[in-house]
Amino acid sequence: MADNSMVTLMAADHIEIQATLQAVKQCATLGTMLEVLDEQQTLGLPIPVLEVSGEALKKVIEWCEYHREDMVVETEQPGVAAQILTSLPQWDTEFFANIGDKDLLIKICNASNFLEIPLLLQYSIFVIAQALRGKSTEEMRAFLNIENDLTPEEEQKIREDNAWAMPQN
């Protein structure tokens, strides 16, 4: 199969998404599947991606299409995570800015983990962490939908113990 040939992916909700083979190969899970499978028997059939919703898969493939000519980055290498902290590329910054919905962001994170796309996974984790940056405890609770189950006494004690570390909370 040529790298520019089209592949159909089918999400958990039966939504079909077209992608170039080159983009699909950014996903290690799908790339391995395609290598193992008999091309003649599978040609033209949709590849089910049952762990991922159509909405998330669409965004993941959008990312893969943009990065289809990039080398697959091994993010466990030293320095890669630090590099992300200093500069998230412009296109990727806009990609995540356009997502807007935090549930979709989590879905993309989980999808990139399932599909084994190391760089997208690292980026999405970084974007989630960035969303928490500088937030007060109360803002974090609101953002993460966390119910405060600490008693006022417990909360006061934690606040006192960590007063130096978080003067504005």
Partner: peptide, 24 residues
């Protein structure tokens, strides 16, 4: 992945996150 999110936070953010709930 949850652990990785936490490792991208700054220590001061981690202190604030710690205070969000008993589990955290």
């Amino acid at each position: 992945l949850f652990m990785k999110v936490l490792t991208f936070l700054r220590p001061s953010d981690l202190f604030r996150f710690q205070r969000t709930s008993r589990n955290n």
